[in-house]
Amino acid sequence: MSLLVFGKTGQLARELARRAPEARFLGRDQADFTAPQACAAQVDGAEAVIIAAAYTAVDKAESEEALATTVNAETPGAIAAACAERGIPLVHVSTDYVFDGAGSAPWRTDDATGPLGAYGRTKLKGEQAVTAAGGAHVILRTSWVVSAHGANFVKTMLRLGAEREVLRVVADQVGGPTPTGDLAAACLAAVQGLQKGIPGGIHHFAGAPDVSWAGFAREIFAQAGLPCAVEEIATADYPTPARRPANSRLDCSGFEADFGVKRPDWRVSLAAILKELGAA
């Protein structure tokens, strides 16, 4: 299979490269997501496409929404249209930020969306553009992505936990940490399913069990052997330019039913991440 992946150095692209080294990976130098049609032209010759590139600077998006819209919505839409014209199945990764974070029930794929900020709005527009293209696709919403690569919560906690005796961490936001290796495997399973004729659409995929950021931090410190204590705080005590959803729980039952992939235990994958980082 000739698999094309948009993305090369990000967390997801790097994990996809481990699992599908034969795929063609396009970095920013070959696929600039500020140029939608140029990116769309790259799909020629591919038998499947995964979009693993995005504008993910949640806070910065508040002041760069136009740029984030091009990267997260217009370019994925153009790629999706090109894939639809050529009959190429497409997997596109989205986010829990398309929801408003109300309540405590896991979000279903058919629940009403309501982004709280610019990042979520641009990702929702991307979902809508991919869907409107009309080709075979899976939109895979995920949450709290972590790995041994790039900047993410695990690496931040390791750094701060080694420097401080106590760390204040938000406890009223709850979601499913998603190790990027597991997300990469889910994307590849989605590609294979689409090629077998499994109907696509919007799906959810995140790690289990659901936990607060504070609880996540405690597990990181415990597995890494760091004595740093966690002091629970409210979101209001840690203001950020962009609002975060309090409830990021995702109902992933549909993806398991259709594609046979269960929610991974993030605690197991965390151990592997820490080992790779030399922190376990």
Rank of each mutant, 00 (worst) to 15 (best):
Q42Y: 11
V146L: 05
A80G: 01
E127A: 07
I139H: 04
A35L: 15
V169D: 03
A148W: 03
I51R: 01
K123Q: 08
F153P: 02
L12F: 09
A40R: 04
A129P: 01
V130F: 11
G10I: 02
F153M: 12
A53Q: 07
A208C: 10
S147R: 13
F33I: 10
G181P: 01
W107D: 02
A31D: 06
A35T: 08
A224R: 12
L90Q: 04
L226N: 04
A132N: 13
L158E: 05
F33Y: 14
P89G: 00
A208F: 10
D265S: 13
G120S: 10
I273T: 11
G254P: 00
L124Q: 12
V268N: 08
D110T: 14
A132S: 13
R249H: 07
E276Y: 08
V170F: 02
G135H: 04
A184G: 09
E65L: 04
G278Q: 08
L250V: 09
K60H: 12
G201K: 01
L26D: 11
Q37G: 11
N72E: 00
G150P: 12
A242R: 02
G197L: 07
A68E: 08
G126A: 05
A151G: 01
A151E: 14
T235A: 08
A73Q: 02
A41N: 12
H149M: 10
P179V: 00
D29M: 09
H137K: 06
L194V: 10
E74F: 01
S253M: 11
G120A: 13
G135T: 06
G278E: 05
C83L: 01
S269V: 05
A57D: 14
S143M: 04
H137M: 03
A224H: 09
G175A: 06
V191Q: 09
V268L: 14
A54K: 00
A129Y: 10
A132R: 14
V146A: 01
A66T: 11
T113E: 01
R164K: 12
G7L: 02
S147G: 13
H203R: 05
R141D: 04
L188C: 10
R244S: 11
R243M: 08
S94K: 02
E231S: 11
P89C: 00
A118D: 06
A208R: 06
G215Q: 03
P76L: 09
H203A: 02
Q128R: 15
E219V: 12
L160G: 07
Q223C: 10
T34Q: 13
G27C: 02
A234N: 09
D265V: 14
Q173M: 06
P245C: 13
